[in-house]
Design a protein around this nucleic acid. Structure first.
Lengths: 353, 353
DNA sequence: ACGCAGCTTGACAATGTTGTCAACGGCGGC
DNA sequence: GCCGCCGTTGACAACATTGTCAAGCTGCGT
């Protein structure tokens, strides 16, 4: 057990500083600094002496102090404000950001907002107080104007998933409207004329855009927009399941929808749950917006309009680092295409009357 | 468009410091510091003047400088080293850590290691160089002794998911062996005598423990351990799918396994893919270790031994904060129980010969 | 008038680091 | 013998902030 240390009795050894290393190596602090930062102009003997002292003392440079003093002031960390680190969309995006940042040896501070404006602001504030070099934000509040001060201070800012309001800045978005339009067109292609819309909170811009795409496609196909087939403000699996059940139960014969467009991940899953409970999963068509793991193992396999959260994260991070490298060009608005993935559930034809 | 600022032409205004605020408010820096930190002993007029200057200058305190000077030296940030931020286990754990940290107004630095020892060390180093107040680590390397220096320096450390080696420290783990044992017992309960084991990389301690549980249960049931029914080192969905196919195809009639225990998330999914491809999903029983989203929407619904990553994160974070609050007790090893969730796939009986 | 207590306030040092610059000793060129 | 140059080195100030402490003020009691 000698290799095990017991914290209760573990000797407390405060962190060594440059000063300690310098004292042990018998050189000035500046010389240690030079060795640590790999600057040249130090004789090999001194380098050795310093190296030895460093490892003997388990010296770890203090990056905060370093950043404070350095002219650039860079902390080599960026902040990432996302909807919910536990959901697959956010976490895939985060991971992609991490991969880009990692190449630049930059760390990631991350936080979830859960659709809470207060939290968005609190997180941004906490990040900037730590002087992150840049921010990636999936905005949730109705106004991002409060971020102007950060931009003016030179902290680059890239928005993802949703367009910021009250501030012109780089952003990377899915082409929500076009994706939703595609979905409805595909359903119409197999003959559906009564296509329901199940949507997220109507005030979320992405939900709005997807609804716009839905409406546009109906118009293009000359299909009527039946208010009874439109449900907004579904935000959880249970919400969606209940709404789906209501929609299909309440069908005055021949008037119920024969296909469903679910405008979001959790809504899609809720709809599937309901369809399975009603035994209708093979008779009502379904296309969901946003892919999800295992969609292709369900029966029927679930057709989706896939977003690409990794790509979104990658592109956003790369944009951010371009800005950090000095790019002062006009702010960009990058629209990522969606992919229509037909797996089965979207190709179910309407029942012949 | 007046509310839109264009970064290309946006005025650059460097961040205001305490000094700037003090100058504008006509007081000393110390007084500003007092106001910012809510200390009392400042007349209301001065407080007002300072507040005004702060908002006029968009002053943001510099927490790095603050931490540097403060006696505690706390940075109000913790580092979290996980397997892969994009996988559901890691991200649920991270989210739970975030929730606990959030209450204490502590931020999270996060990174993925991808089974790479180098990366584990690099991340820990990067975190400690930023003087995080504590670390939560899902260790991947074979020796965590290198962390002793950090512990001695007073940085609390909690391991999750896997036990550290070469270092005695707090850790929070799932009861892998018992969970795996349960799984095999449940399969034996419905009559299976040829139960295959599909395992992750054998050198991962959790995989080892799960295999131990599998072996133990076989022993307890008096079932033979058939090497042909044991496959190790599966780490991806594809690996697992191939292995499953091979296992079931290669069945000399009457010798193939009638049930499968899949020791990990991705392996379970791979096995399901293969079973579906072979049309055997309703005839070969399956229990997977670790729950996954939508397991209860598949057909058959997938039985699992569920871990509780959120709970793991929550408990680990709380332990960490206890240590930060000064608890110097002996290091704890917390075993979280698993839950057996029988949904259908695990209750399929063996085909009658 | 004086001393003293209590509150407010600011000067100064310190945190751990790096940028600036001058000093050092040795050397070749005048 | 002196100048200037070289590579190396360290003294010092600075970064943004907070802890310490003494000075300043008011009002009170004597």
């Amino acid at each position: 057990m000698t290799e095990h240390a017991d914290p209760a009795t573990m000797p407390y050894r405060p962190r060594a500083t440059l000063r300690d290393v310098a004292a042990m190596a018998g050189v000035s602090m500046k010389t240690v600094s030079r060795v640590v930062n790999g600057e040249n102009g130090v004789t090999p003997q001194k380098v050795d002496a310093v190296r030895q002292a460093i490892s003997r003392l388990d010296y770890r440079p203090n990056l905060s102090a370093s950043a404070l003093r350095r002219s650039s002031g860079r902390t080599a960390a960026i902040g990432t404000v996302l909807e919910d680190l536990a959901n697959p969309f956010s976490s895939a995006l985060l991971r992609a950001v991490e991969d880009v940042a990692n190449e630049k040896r930059v760390l990631i501070l991350a936080g979830s907002v859960d659709e809470d404006q207060q939290r968005e602001r609190a997180l941004v504030r906490a990040f900037t107080e730590r002087r992150v070099d840049g921010l990636i934000v999936a905005p949730v509040g109705e106004d991002q104007g409060y971020l102007r001060a950060e931009m003016e201070a030179g902290t680059p800012l890239v928005f993802v998933d949703r367009q910021p309001q009250g501030l012109l800045a780089d952003c990377v978005l899915s082409d929500n409207e076009s994706g939703a339009r595609q979905a409805v067109h595909r359903l119409a292609d197999v003959g559906h004329r009564r296509i329901a819309y199940l949507g997220d909170l109507a005030l979320i811009p992405t939900a709005e855009q997807r609804f716009a795409g839905y409406q546009r496609a109906l118009l293009e196909r000359g299909l009527p927009l039946d208010p009874a087939h439109v449900v907004h403000d579904l935000h959880t699996v249970d919400d969606a399941a209940r709404a789906t059940t209501a929609l299909l139960r309440g069908l005055g014969d021949g008037n119920g929808p024969t296909a469903i467009f679910a405008s979001q991940n959790l809504v899609t899953i809720g709809a599937i749950t309901a369809l399975q409970d009603l035994g209708l999963e093979d008779s009502v068509a379904l296309i969901g917006f946003d892919d999800f793991p295992l969609a292709d193992l369900l029966k029927p396999r679930v057709s989706v309009i896939a977003q690409n959260p990794s790509e979104m994260g990658r592109v956003a991070a790369e944009l951010l680092f371009q800005r950090l490298d000095g790019d002062r060009g006009r702010p960009q608005r990058i629209l990522l295409p969606t992919t229509t993935v037909l797996r089965g559930s979207g190709e179910i034809p309407p029942a012949v009357p």
